[in-house]
Design a binder for these strands. Structure first.
Lengths: 187, 187
DNA sequence: GTCTATAAAGAGATAGAC
DNA sequence: GTCTATCTCTTTATAGAC
């Protein structure tokens, strides 16, 4: 085929799968070209900054997706806090492939990518902490405690993903996720 | 200097610092040569299998160190269970640089290295789980609960390290580590 | 907007001197 | 046991046709 094309969403979806699996340093432009069905030169046309810019676009896109699918529904979605936390736990389970996929925060925060990307990860993690703390507070937990519970919930999710990858078994992640509603006061 | 040399321990120490910081794919033989003060060819003399063999040696060496400094003292060290858990928490704090250094289990379990290395990481993580579960059981927690508490403790340590790296702040790790004695029933 | 082709730099790996 | 020198392959990045 002489001319192939692919939507930005589909391109970033496939790039995300590579980066979250192999990390920034573990992914080459050749892999990105194969995964997207484009030639390397075409990737440079769409992302003149090369791999750094692709990675940054992936993280920006993931951050937007989390805002839309996790943070916003937690804050303003319909139903009780309990029901909203249940919903986003289900979405997290899907996003992390029942514990068999790694976290983009984990793999992309390894030194090697740009400073800009590192800052985007930090800001998104902070938004996650804030979203969890707000729902815990809504559930009746005091401000300081709510922030502690939010951090503990995310800590267990991230740690569960690490253990799941090391052990080759999604169960540690599943057990971590199961504890989230109680931690946020919505069990 | 025409002939430099370096002990195996010192070499593996410096290689570990690189691998735990940048991950397997993020470390080149050039970096390893510079960090150890040897030329690449000298590294191949000592590790004919190249980067894979160096990484494997690092993990084997770390596993031995954890056995000696963490697992064994937890099982047979002197003093109460409470005192032994306190001691190994202090050693973990030091090993992880108060949360500012990443975990070798996390970074080296990213696909790219050999299957042998992956299996060594899994076995060492299992030994860690077993060691924590044994001390929790000694502290009076039932078998199934002890295993759950051991997993939760390690999950929080690993997750705390991820959050600390993303946020650029060792505090999440410190808070996770603080919870370990209570989780293991030795608070 | 994607392609083919290629340049330039860096990676892993080996040969052979000392 | 370490060195210098080199080889090959991969990677990033660009030029120019269509």
């Amino acid at each position: 085929m002489a001319h192939r094309t692919i939507s930005d969403d589909e391109l970033l979806t496939r790039a995300l799968e590579l980066f979250r699996t192999f990390g920034f340093e573990g992914v080459s432009l050749k892999q990105l070209a194969e995964a997207t069905g484009l030639e390397k030169a075409s990737l440079y046309y769409r992302f003149p900054g090369g791999k750094d810019e692709i990675a940054m676009a992936v993280v920006t896109w993931v951050a937007g997706g989390m805002q839309q699918l996790i943070f916003d529904p937690l804050a303003t979605g319909g139903g009780t806090a309990r029901r909203r936390v249940q919903l986003i736990c289900e979405r997290l389970r899907e996003f992390y492939g029942c514990g068999l996929k790694s976290c983009v925060f984990d793999l992309m925060s390894i030194p090697g990518a740009s400073q800009e990307l590192k800052e985007a990860l930090r800001a998104t993690m902070q938004a996650w902490l804030d979203a969890f703390a707000a729902v815990a507070k809504e559930a009746g937990i005091s401000g300081a405690q709510a922030r502690a519970r939010a951090e503990e919930a995310i800590t267990r999710i991230e740690g569960g993903l690490v253990l799941s990858r090391v052990m080759g078994d999604g169960a540690p992640f599943e057990r971590a996720l199961k504890a989230v509603p109680e931690l946020l006061g919505t069990a």
